[in-house]
């Protein structure tokens, strides 16, 4: 019984994931103004040669701020968990 449910789930998930993906062309992404703008103007505006770093730290700085905050809070959570585990020791 479990195997039947598992096979059915696999089939449903595979169909669900493959359906939107199968029509995409690998190597020929859809044209977006944003990416084109980053590649054409990112170097002049920020001075960095690495466009990915320009996007991460300049154009999408808020994203990185949230990312750094998530990492900080996760470490706080890990510390909280293990502090209670070891009985108050730092």
């Amino acid at each position: 019984m479990k195997r039947v449910i598992m096979a059915a789930t696999v089939a449903v998930l595979l169909a669900g994931f493959l359906a939107p993906v199968i029509g995409l062309d690998f190597g020929e992404p859809a044209y977006t103004d944003m990416d084109e703008y980053f590649v054409q103007h990112g170097q002049e505006q920020t001075g960095g040669n690495n466009i990915v770093t320009d996007v991460v730290f300049d154009f999408r700085g808020f994203d990185t701020l949230g990312e750094a905050t998530v990492l900080f809070v996760a470490v706080l959570g890990v510390g909280l968990v293990f502090r209670t585990l070891r009985g108050g020791e730092t």
Binding site: Q40, H41, Q43, E44, T46, G47, G48, N49, T53, D54, F57, D58
Partner: peptide
């Protein structure tokens, strides 16, 4: 240091706040 568009050898003294 200001940088123009196009490939360059790379100067460490660029990038602003990055």
């Amino acid at each position: 240091m200001p940088v123009g568009f196009g490939p360059n050898p790379g100067d460490l003294n660029t990038g602003g706040t990055i």
